[in-house]
Design a protein around this nucleic acid. Structure first.
Lengths: 151, 151
DNA sequence: GTGAATGCAAACTCTTTGCATGACT
DNA sequence: AGTCATGCAAAGAGTTTGCATTCAC
């Protein structure tokens, strides 16, 4: 699929932002940004690297990771949690409590919460999607009380 | 922290379920379940393995992974996605669209959706939590239209 | 010319798998 | 006794890091 108008906008925006923030404009960065814009939503570093190789680029995977880290720091890309990855588990009783998690960006502390309105919104939402939804994860991120006080 | 009543209940329940499903009752499994019950919510395989070693157990990490897989299959533990792990990225424009993802359990297809009611619920929820929330991820899982038809 | 950014390769972390040994039923 | 489950160790996937080289400024 060709890049959409929005993705072109984003690529330009990202390149401009890098320049205005004093980062050097290199071919690898431009290529990574272009691929990111073209592939759209929810792309892994691995997929970007593969796409670069397919295009005959000599950009290495280390640069992909470094550039993603930079783009994330500048909030030019958002890191999303889709599934897989570092798995965490918790005991589950049949019909037991249903809760989600808040993770502290600073210290990594994980707390649990429950919210009926949230569940209701997800249930209603599930009805209007084409997918047959059978599970959901919600993760909030921010600063925990301890780290807030330490500011 | 000592095991709570609930976690003891869960450990017993899990052991009973394994037995009733014909799985052998082994020391490693019992230890893993005990650790899982004690550590509570959101534990990684790595943390379980570390705790086992700390306790002087000879249980290897392969058994931890195999037991977690088994427990997940029996729905005795729930796999939760907290963050980290396989990172996926997407272009982000400042003030750009805000959306979440539905992942097909069968084919891995990722689709995006937006839902105002969901966002509203999360915003309201954020206000009553002690954390200073600055981001959130919502991931739904189920079967995509294509895979549903293929049933 | 100088320092930032790159590519390569090695190191690391987490997870999975093969296989011989050991333990539950 | 039979076979399920284990531990070990090796292999695999994804990511990070050190270092010499290259390239943008």
């Amino acid at each position: 699929m060709a890049a959409t108008d929005t993705s072109v906008d984003w690529a330009d925006h990202a390149l401009a932002r890098l320049a205005s923030d004093g980062y050097r404009s290199s071919a690898p960065r431009a290529e990574i940004i272009e691929v990111l814009a073209g592939l759209g939503c929810s792309v892994s570093a691995r997929e970007i690297t593969a796409e670069l190789q397919r295009r005959g680029s000599t950009t290495g995977s280390a640069s992909v990771y470094r550039t993603l880290e930079l783009l994330e720091r500048l909030k030019l890309v958002q890191r999303v949690v889709v599934s897989e990855g570092l798995a965490r588990y918790e005991p589950a009783l049949p019909g037991g409590d249903h809760h989600h998690h808040v993770v502290c960006d600073r210290c990594g502390k994980v707390s649990a919460f429950e919210d009926e309105a949230l569940e209701a919104a997800i249930n209603r939402l599930s009805l209007r999607l084409d997918f047959a939804i059978d599970a959901h994860d919600v993760t909030l991120r921010g600063e925990c009380p301890g780290c807030r006080r330490a500011d």
